[in-house]
């Protein structure tokens, strides 16, 4: 099972500052292990964020994003206490969602 994301969402002025840490191996599929076998690709392909059901971010990712990725972005039009939900989906079809209240 995947680890929970660490999400911070803070309202400053009219914008919400979002910082997300995700726990993921982000294997590119280009590496070989000690025995010379290719380590199969396993990385996040989609990240979405929604605030009170309204989509605020939709990102397509590839293998060049680092292990345990860090993502920061800002968006407008939310109030304190609103729920921000972040979801990622990876090449194995696994997905994880976490939700925080905007502070």
């Amino acid at each position: 099972m995947s680890d929970p994301m660490r999400i911070r969402a803070v309202l400053t002025g009219d914008k919400v500052d979002v910082k997300i840490l995700m726990g993921h191996v982000m294997e590119t599929g280009q590496r070989k292990d000690a025995d010379g076998n290719v380590v199969p690709a396993h990385y996040i392909v989609k990240v979405t964020a929604s605030c009170n059901g309204r989509e605020v971010l939709d990102a397509d990712w590839g293998p060049s994003v680092s292990k345990n990725p860090y993502l920061a972005f800002r968006f407008k039009g939310a109030a304190k206490g609103d729920k921000l939900k972040v979801t990622w989906t990876d090449t194995a079809g696994e997905s994880r969602s976490d939700e925080v209240a905007i502070a």
Binding site: D3, R8, L21, N68
Partner: peptide, 14 residues
């Protein structure tokens, strides 16, 4: 550049 956002936080949570 990492500021407070150290991936070690994922370990801390776990």
């Amino acid at each position: 550049m990492f500021g407070d956002e150290n991936p070690a936080e994922l370990w801390e949570l776990r």
